[in-house]
């Protein structure tokens, strides 16, 4: 079960004869449970296109994929209920403006569950929980979603998907446009959801600190192709790859800099600030 990509390519067609390939022959396995995956890469590397495939919003141009046992091919299959796939795989878009439309936050978050024919009271309950979960209190329930700040809108849009209680959660840059504290809160939230329910969470991010600290699997995309898949630990030891396509997390940067300037021999691969401190203390002694 879960999501399986089998040599999936997707091509955007345009009016001129050029065809822009967004992703090219991606094969990928995402289990239903116990995964915490980061999807990284430059802008335009095909991350969002990949994410949209995960709940069958767009169909592969070639190749096929299986989402919870349902085979998704180039053509829409009338026998498949695509709405069911979207209940199983929840995708949060990068820009919240594209989905908010109701007059109150609560109603907007209820829209998802109501589409899956959950009755009103239950949907309300789910929505309230989801809103609290993303760190907004009761005072937000009756507010107009368009009068919120960017970060609050983002949280509401995340709550809108969480309320659907999907089995797999896919988030397109959930922390972009948030302040550092907000980023932490949300990352802790996703980690918490992952740890308490064992749900698989896939997050698109540019933040290498987060990748190094939280995730147990990283997929690196470049120009539509998957160039790395595996543990972040191994990824950041692959200096050629990092220097060409990505960046080191701050902890590694700091320790590397210390090594270079003070001619020390510290172990640079430390995840948290405390680990870094411990390593430095060792050297000071």
């Amino acid at each position: 079960m879960g999501i399986r990509f089998n040599e999936v390519s997707y091509t955007y067609n345009s009016f001129s004869d050029m065809e822009a390939s967004a992703i090219y022959k991606i094969s990928l396995d995402i289990k239903e449970k116990d995964e915490f995956i980061a999807l990284v890469g430059h802008t335009g590397s095909g991350k969002t296109t990949l994410a949209k495939h995960m709940n069958a919003l767009i169909f592969p141009t070639s190749g096929y994929m299986e989402i919870f046992g349902k085979k998704i091919e180039h053509k829409r299959n009338k026998k498949i209920k695509y709405n069911d796939i979207r209940q199983n795989v929840g995708l949060v878009f990068q820009f919240p403006e594209y989905q908010l439309f109701e007059e109150t936050v609560l109603k907007d978050v209820m829209f998802g569950p109501m589409n899956f024919h959950i009755d009103k009271e239950e949907a309300k309950e789910l929505a309230m929980n989801a809103i609290r979960l993303v760190g907004l209190d009761e005072s937000y329930f009756e507010r107009n979603p368009y009068n919120l700040s960017g970060g609050e809108k983002k949280r509401v849009s995340i709550a809108g998907i969480l309320a659907m209680d999907p089995k797999i959660l896919v988030l397109d840059e959930p922390t972009s446009g948030l302040d550092p504290a907000g980023k932490r809160v949300l990352m802790e939230l996703f980690l918490n959801i992952h740890e308490t329910t064992n749900k698989t969470v896939v997050i698109i991010t540019h933040d290498m600190d987060l990748v190094y600290e939280y995730f147990n699997r990283v997929i690196v995309m470049n120009e539509g192709e998957k160039i790395y898949e595996g543990e972040p630990e191994k990824l950041f030891r692959n200096s050629a790859l990092i220097e060409e396509y990505l960046d080191y997390p701050n902890s590694i940067k700091v320790l590397k800099h210390l090594n270079k300037t003070l001619k020390l021999d510290l172990d640079v691969f430390k995840k948290t600030a405390d680990d870094v401190l411990a390593e430095i203390k060792k050297a000071v002694k």
């Binding site: 949209k52 695509y82 709405n83 979207r86 878009f93 594209y98 809108g160 998907i161």
Partner: peptide, 17 residues
């Protein structure tokens, strides 16, 4: 198109229902 996709991922697919 983007809005349609965002709403479809909340279970509002225009070709179903």
């Amino acid at each position: 198109n983007k809005i349609m996709q965002a709403q479809a991922s909340r279970g509002a697919d225009f070709s179903e229902g």
